[in-house]
């Protein structure tokens, strides 16, 4: 446990020093502010770009539009930036050989994997938390009184999907070689997950559902129990992926 915290601290320091922390926090802060603003301004912008004399009726934006922006941005740009920033999570230290010293001095490989995942998860949690909080504050300010349902659970699903992707990235980085091998493998796995939805009945258990059905939850079109199977599978998958990452990393020559 002690090793875990020492290495966790080292990881977080490294994130600060290599600008990873700065990038993620700034990007998610920017998203947090932009989401409600875009929702509010879209009708005005569209009206400005329309040719003279043409009238289109655009429904008045609501808080739901603001949250639709939040889920869309977090899911697309947010997760892409997250994976890009952490793409060298294992490869960097393996290629530089900086881990060898620590491991020969008695740091367990288990602690390395656990702390690396813990540090990434912590940064992701803080980032998505700040983004959701800012979106929430500004949404209430711009669209007071609009109803949004199951918001905390919808954001939790988004967070869980991010946590799942980070576990995929860690396992993929342990398996693949080089700086971008892990990233490439993660991309392939996401594509496979998307195509699994073709199989009838699979969509219910697919982790993808956690990132796809947030708006249904927020709009009240779906109830949280509809996502329990996918959430359960995702938690199990995270544990299995961490186990896999550890098993591969144990055997890895450094």
């Amino acid at each position: 446990m002690n090793h875990f915290f020492v290495f966790l601290k080292k990881e977080l320091l490294e994130y600060a020093r290599t600008y990873k922390l700065l990038i993620l926090l700034t990007v998610f802060i920017i998203f947090g502010i932009t989401n409600p603003l875009i929702a509010k301004l879209t009708p005005d912008l569209l009206a400005n770009f329309m040719p003279e004399g043409m009238t289109v009726t655009i429904p008045e934006p609501t808080a739901l539009d603001s949250w639709a922006q939040f889920f869309k941005n977090t899911q697309q740009m947010g997760l892409i930036v997250l994976l890009l920033v952490f793409s060298g999570v294992l490869a960097n230290e393996i290629s530089k050989g900086t881990l060898i010293n620590l491991l020969t001095k008695g740091l367990s490989r288990q602690a390395v994997i656990a702390a690396k995942y813990g540090a990434m998860l912590l940064v992701w949690s803080v980032s998505v938390g700040i983004s959701a909080l800012l979106t929430c504050i500004y949404t209430v300010y711009l669209f007071p009184g609009d109803p949004v349902s199951h918001l905390i659970f919808a954001v939790f699903c988004m967070w869980l999907f991010g946590a799942f992707l980070l576990a995929v990235l860690l396992a993929a980085s342990a398996l693949a070689k080089g700086n971008y091998g892990g990233l490439l493998l993660t991309g392939c796995i996401v594509v496979v997950l998307f195509s699994l939805n073709i199989i009838p009945g699979a969509a219910k258990y697919n982790p993808i559902a956690l990132a796809a059905r947030n708006m249904e939850l927020a709009a009240g079109a779906a109830e949280p129990p509809a996502l329990y199977p996918a959430a359960g599978i995702t938690v199990l998958a995270v544990l299995a992926l961490l186990g896999l990452a550890l098993a591969v990393f144990r055997k890895k020559e450094l």
Partner: peptide
């Protein structure tokens, strides 16, 4: 008008963008 109405959004947005650019 947009600037006056939405400075509460635009100011932190601009600060964040600039912080990233300057770093």
């Amino acid at each position: 008008d947009v600037l006056r109405e939405y400075w509460l959004f635009l100011l932190p947005l601009i600060i964040a963008q600039f912080a990233l650019m300057i770093t």
